[in-house]
């Protein structure tokens, strides 16, 4: 009714900043400032260079998890997938650089297989993603143990120099993660399939009513996710000199945490790749910070839990409604704010 402005041509801003990205970026900056003030060793060059490769791996895993979560799913096969990639890329070459390419091809072949299995079960058969990916995770660990026998092998020098090295002072792992981030963003935002994928995540019912093949898109998320988990696993194999067979275990909860912190809803909807990436940096730096404060290892976990709880609360609680309710309480007759 108040809308009497003459309609003008609608415009679009080139860069939008999501709530999640804003929250994460501000939190990370605050964390760095706190680091300078309270725990300078957490922002020393050595600490940051040591943190970034692992943060990059987490970021890539997180991006994969995000693609699944934005379709209203969850992928619990992260540990198996990452561990299998680590094991394949160390065991097949067995320190022979020339065998690295076949090893990486094998990693991606397994990833596609696992992704198709998950995607088929969730997208086609309509299984609950928790059960389906839990089962796949067990199978992947079966493969990990079948291939490695549980015994770690040393990384090839080539992989270690690529994933663990630096270019112009910047860790290669970070560069790779940035490339992955750009790729994911372009695929989702700038291709027909990606945009449809996003639409299906935002509302499966509406996507179906507009004639999109929503089941296929839902299933495809799991394939994309596995490819990213595999990439992360290969990098992890390069960064860690002698990775264990269970290297992926730590990434299950943290991958879900960075997705949630980045503002993607666990009920599905839009995914926020950049925010997820920054959330991975934030969570890793948080670790460093707490570590540098000299408090016990365990406190780190508690701080993570608190960060997660606050993060989820920021996105799920309807703050505007809460403010209205609180504001209305002293004077119940006052009309609610618009």
């Amino acid at each position: 009714m108040t809308d009497d402005s003459t309609p003008q041509r609608l415009t679009s801003a080139r860069l939008g900043v999501s709530k999640g990205l804003l929250t994460m970026a501000v939190s990370t900056v605050v964390l760095v400032i706190l680091g300078f003030a309270l725990a300078p060793s957490s922002v020393s060059q050595g600490a940051v260079l040591g943190m970034l490769p692992f943060a990059s791996v987490l970021a890539i895993v997180g991006l994969g998890q995000m693609l699944v979560v934005q379709q209203g799913g969850i992928d619990l096969s992260v540990p198996g997938a990452v561990s299998l990639a680590v094991v394949l890329s160390t065991h097949i070459p067995n320190q022979d650089d020339s065998m690295l390419v076949p090893a990486i091809l094998a990693v991606y072949a397994w990833a596609i297989g696992a992704g198709l299995l998950n995607g088929f079960m969730v997208g086609r058969l309509g299984l609950n993603p928790i059960i389906a990916t839990l089962g796949t995770n067990a199978l992947l660990f079966g493969a990990v143990l079948g291939i490695s026998g549980g015994i770690p092998r040393t990384t090839t020098r080539l992989l270690s120099s690529i994933a663990g090295g630096r270019t112009a002072g910047i860790p290669n792992a970070l560069l790779i993660a940035l490339v992955v981030l750009v790729l994911v963003t372009i695929l989702v935002k700038r291709t027909v399939a990606g945009r449809r994928f996003e639409a299906v995540g935002a509302s499966p019912a509406a996507a179906r009513a507009t004639g999109l093949r929503y089941r296929t898109h839902r299933g495809a998320a799991y394939v994309w996710a596995q490819l990213l988990f595999a990439t992360a696993g290969i990098m992890l194999a390069g960064i860690t000199n002698q990775p264990t067979a269970f290297q992926g275990n730590t990434y299950l909860l943290t991958s879900v945490a960075v997705v949630v912190l980045g503002g993607t809803s666990l009920l599905g909807g839009r995914g926020y790749p950049v925010a997820t990436f920054v959330a991975a940096l934030f969570l890793s730096q948080l670790d460093q910070f707490v570590l540098a404060l000299g408090v016990p290892f365990a406190v780190r976990t508690l701080v993570q839990a608190a960060a997660l709880a606050i993060g989820v609360a920021i996105y799920t609680v309807d703050w505007a409604a809460l403010r209205r309710r609180l504001a209305a309480r002293p004077d119940a007759s006052a009309p609610a704010a618009p």
Binding site: I74, L253, V256, A257, V260, L266, L267, P296, F297, A298, V299, R300, T301, L302, V303, Q304, A305, A306, L308, A309, V312, A313, T316, V317
Partner: peptide, 23 residues
């Protein structure tokens, strides 16, 4: 009451409990 999804809520508690065990 806070309207977390069951996964988000129990995941938060999961991490917190693990931390407290180690403390």
């Amino acid at each position: 009451y806070v309207r977390f999804t069951a996964i988000a809520a129990t995941l938060t508690v999961y991490i917190a409990l693990q931390g407290m065990s180690f403390i």
